[in-house]
Nucleic acid binder design. Structure first.
Lengths: 117, 117
DNA sequence: TTAACATGTAATTACATTATTACCTATAGA
DNA sequence: TCTATAGGTAATAATGTAATTACATGTTAA
């Protein structure tokens, strides 16, 4: 279980699409270096490092030094915690109420580009 | 499945802790009015409405008019989509690599205050 | 119709995040 | 050593988000 503060950091980290992309890349190439990671983005290496810092402070990415480079890895623990938050706290209720919610959505005409997804 | 743009809106909406709290409240009292929701927060009603707008644009909350008030409901669909993203795209890999990731984290000494060696 | 109420919009200000340039540190290998 | 390389830090500019006050719209009930 994460503290409220850790939860804040994880959600803040996930709120930027480049950072979500970074998680995808590190997942696909565990042990990727900072430079290799940065080469996948249009922004500067420094911008990527700033994002990396946010991800590391949220503990979504962990790293180990390897000579003059640094190897990056995904850390699943915070994601597991979020998964548990949603499933335990939300989904258990939400699933029970799915039909109510869906009908409410349709009645409100807010969900109308596609009435069925 | 959500578009990249819809995904952006959902993560952005979830990034603010007041908005996550609002989801909890609406889940617990489906059909809650805007004013009732606002009474749970220290900020102004307008600030709450701004948050509400973000949540509605992310389709995490839907609403129906009821006379001069508005009833709010949770919409589980975007959460389901995220859940599927993480589980299909991330967790399947992450779970396979848990031990690798954990040992990497410990080697880097980034994941715990305790240096267990 | 009118008063009170519930909600909504606009414009502004304060604050936080993102991306940049310039500079600094540490390592591998000729 | 010296130099190219990989990474890291600091300060700042540009952009985006959050919260506010003031005003506007629409609904109920007397």
């Amino acid at each position: 279980m994460l503290t409220k503060d850790e939860m804040d950091r994880v959600f803040a980290a996930l709120s930027h699409s480049s950072r979500r992309d970074m998680l995808d890349l590190v997942r696909d190439k565990p042990g990727l270096s900072v430079g290799e990671l940065a080469s996948n983005f249009d922004v500067t290496r420094i911008a990527v490092m700033n994002h990396l810092k946010v991800l590391e402070e949220a503990r979504l990415i962990v790293s180990e030094r390897d000579g003059r480079s640094r190897r990056l890895y995904l850390n699943a623990v915070p994601i597991q915690a979020i998964y548990e938050r949603w499933t335990d706290k939300f989904s258990a209720h939400w699933l029970d109420r799915m039909s109510l919610i869906k009908s409410a959505a349709e009645a409100a005409g807010k969900d109308t580009e596609r009435t069925d997804e």
